[in-house]
Amino acid sequence: MEKIRVVHYINQFYAGIGGEDKADIAPLEYQGAKGPGIGLMQEFKEQADIVATVVCGDSYFGENIDEATGIILEMIKKHNPDVVITGPAFNAGRYGVAAGAVAQAVKYKLGIPTVSGMYEENPGADMFKKFTYMVETKSSAVGMKDALQKMAPLAIRLAKGESIGTSAEEGYMERGIRVNTFMPERGAKRAVDMLMAKLNDQPFETEYPMPVFDRVEPQPAVKDITKARIAIVSSGGPVPKGNPEHIESSSASKYGRYSIEGVMDLDETNGETAHGGYDPCYANEDLDRVIPLDVLREMEAAGEIGSLHNFYYSTVGNGTSVANSKAYAKEIAKFLKEDHVDAVILTST
């Protein structure tokens, strides 16, 4: 039997091209397996071959989503694969978005089945889990072997056209797709059984889970911005020069609250970024590129805004858990209330 043809999509880091300094490279391709693809090849157990590896820099993809997807699709198409694997991206946000977007485009534009993998809090998971088989992985490459062991067999089965069970049975993320199936008991009986279990505090599994909409109602607009007090918050890791509180470059365990009283401009002497998820050279040269302090000070002086709250708040959004970010934001909001802040500009990188 002929071997299954696989094309694998990874980022510049896993391709061994470089870290953040190379995150702006345009799509390119290699013959055969590269990086985690070598691990996939072992898991394929001679049944499949990675015929090509397509690579794109994470920032390039994030800043040129449509164009990059188009180029990548062309690269993938000409290898005529039976299945395409993207990632695993773990908790790398831009990589997760790229891996998800490529998987979706391949599935819907080329009609080729796809498997992706990432951590459940990766923004790419929520964005794309409906459009591809997405395996849940650990948050970092520590979970590489485990991820590849799940992704490889799923890819092989998809390539062979085998039927795939439910998300709970197979361990991929729920896609929100309902499939007709026969049950031994009729609906009325199942419903009453569930109700009885619920009344008796027994465990039961709903057949129709409600979607979770984690949304916040928009706050009313600011009435008069020229009277408003504005605060700056950022997940791009801006910190005073030297990062006095040692905010971690990823998975930050804290946030910083930094005085900007009397500071009119940021430059290489008074600010830098602690963020390890993007090339820091531009922010380190002029931190106004991440938090626009200089122009806000000008606008404050000119009366375009009422005033600027005299602290900025910062954490590193890179791989930081949702629970931690929420906790930091709650504390930040207390400080904002104390100083009667009216509105917030939050910047992300």
Binding site: G62, E63, V97, T315, S325, A333, T347
Partner: peptide, 20 residues
């Protein structure tokens, strides 16, 4: 962070590059 700060009563404008 955006959502949590907004839920505490502040209108927040999110300035970022990857809109999705």
């Amino acid at each position: 962070m955006v959502k949590e700060i907004e839920s505490q009563g502040f209108p927040v404008v999110h300035m970022c590059t990857v809109v999705p």
